[in-house]
Amino acid sequence: MLHHGKHWRSMCKGLVLGTLLTSFMLLLYSYAVPPLQVRKLLPADTTFVTVLRDPAYLFESSFHYFGRVIPLTWKLTGEDKLAEFLRDPWHYYDPNGFNAHYLQNLLFFDLGYDNNMNANSPLVEEHIQEIDRRFHLVMLLEYFDESLVLLKDLLCWQLEDILYFKLNARKGSTVSRLTPELYEKATSWNLIDTKLYRYFNATFWRKVEAYGRERMAKDVAELQRENEKMKSICIDGGHAVDASAIQESSMQPWQPLGEKSILGYNLKKKINKKHQKLCRKMLTPEIQYLTDLGVNLWITKLWSRVRDFLKW
Rank of each mutant, 00 (worst) to 15 (best):
A169C: 07
N120Y: 11
F24P: 02
S30A: 15
A83N: 09
E226Q: 13
L154T: 04
D88T: 09
F165S: 04
Y31F: 13
L42M: 12
M251T: 01
L293W: 03
H64W: 10
K218C: 11
V124N: 03
V149L: 07
E184D: 14
F85G: 00
D161F: 01
P285H: 04
C12Q: 09
R177Q: 15
P35H: 02
K311F: 09
K301V: 10
S244E: 15
A169T: 08
L58T: 08
H136W: 02
F108R: 01
G264M: 04
L123F: 07
S147F: 04
D193P: 00
T22K: 14
L167R: 12
Y211T: 03
A221G: 13
Q276A: 13
T300H: 12
A56G: 08
M25N: 15
C279R: 00
N168D: 10
N266S: 04
Q288G: 07
L223S: 03
H239D: 14
T19A: 14
Y93F: 14
M282F: 02
A83Y: 02
H3M: 10
K277G: 03
V138Q: 02
H91L: 15
D110P: 03
S10C: 13
K195M: 06
L76H: 06
I128P: 02
A243N: 11
R206V: 12
K218L: 14
S147H: 04
T77E: 15
T73C: 05
S147L: 02
I246V: 06
K207P: 00
F109G: 01
